[in-house]
Design a protein around this nucleic acid. Structure first.
Ligand SMILES: [Mn+2]
Ligand SMILES: [Mn+2]
Ligand SMILES: [Zn+2]
Ligand SMILES: [Zn+2]
Lengths: 145, 145
DNA sequence: CCCCTATTGATAATGATTATCATGTTTGAT
DNA sequence: ATCAAACATGATAATCATTATCAATAGGGG
């Protein structure tokens, strides 16, 4: 997601970029493609804004998600994770390795057929989330040995 | 999932069916296709076993999930939900209505192509979870008015 | 510089889940 | 049947992520 587009969305939302919010946003931009928890964001952002509190991190992550600058997602560990949006795309998909916990992304969108089917039945599809549980190639090899 | 198969799995796991566990399992069987939280299960199961404690409910739901008698799943409300497994199938898919919160199931499996692709790349696919966020036909009509 | 409002950080509160522990129940050997 | 060991239970405390509260602060427009 380009800085220009981010800026536009914050503008529309009347959202002032304070030092703290800037720090959080910068951390997210420096971690494109990663999926950070609030605590992880706090740890990184404190390098830029040492007194930053966890409450501000939560507030900022939620607000940025509501502006669709971030995705807020949940795997199955009982906590939320956040990632900076990339434009154009629908939410992309995640493969989680059951051995090493690594999260790998896939861009293929084979869901349009399914979504068309639902729209034919009167649904209005807004978004989707697909998680595939797998053993990644490395872990698959290790297990085989 | 047939009683016979459930029985077989508990057997394999050396899992004795106490009154409390039976109560929990019965609630799950009486609610095929629904997605219950631990508290919801507790409320129902207490009709059968009045002194049942929440700890036993959690213990039982987790154990039954580990035997693949139940699915343990997470949407994005910060809590787990459980549903009795149906055989044959891979995990099925869920549509959540963003207006009324209703959960609708879909059986179509259009993910095999994607999973084949991943297996070609060396992954071993174990399971997947697909959630589609939508407005259901009823809510779509209401919003339009 | 001053007022007003938005923002912040510390901390308390909440809600779901898990851990602990004393008590009760079942099992299987005698 | 008796008894010890293993298992299971319910109450309750502990934990963890998240949200709410609130007094102190910052900063922009006059
Ligand atoms: Mn991602
Ligand atoms: Mn289901
Ligand atoms: Zn791996
Ligand atoms: Zn609806």
């Amino acid at each position: 997601m380009t800085d220009r587009l981010i800026w536009q969305r914050l503008e529309e939302g009347n959202y002032r970029l304070t030092q703290q919010r800037q720090a959080v946003l910068d951390v997210m931009k420096e971690n494109r493609g990663r999926h950070l928890s609030a605590e992880e964001v706090l740890a990184e952002a404190r390098k830029k804004a040492p007194n930053l509190g966890i409450a501000t991190v939560y507030r900022t992550l939620d607000k940025l998600s509501s502006f669709e600058v971030l995705y807020k997602m949940v795997f199955d560990e009982g906590k939320y994770r956040y990632e900076i949006c990339e434009d154009e795309h629908h939410r992309h998909h995640h493969v989680i390795c059951l051995s090493c916990g690594q999260i790998i992304e896939i861009e293929e969108d084979l869901l349009s057929k399914l979504e068309k089917h639902l729209e034919g039945k009167g649904f209005e599809v807004v978004d989707h989330q697909l998680i595939i549980y797998a053993n990644c190639p490395d872990c698959k090899k290790k297990v085989k040995k």
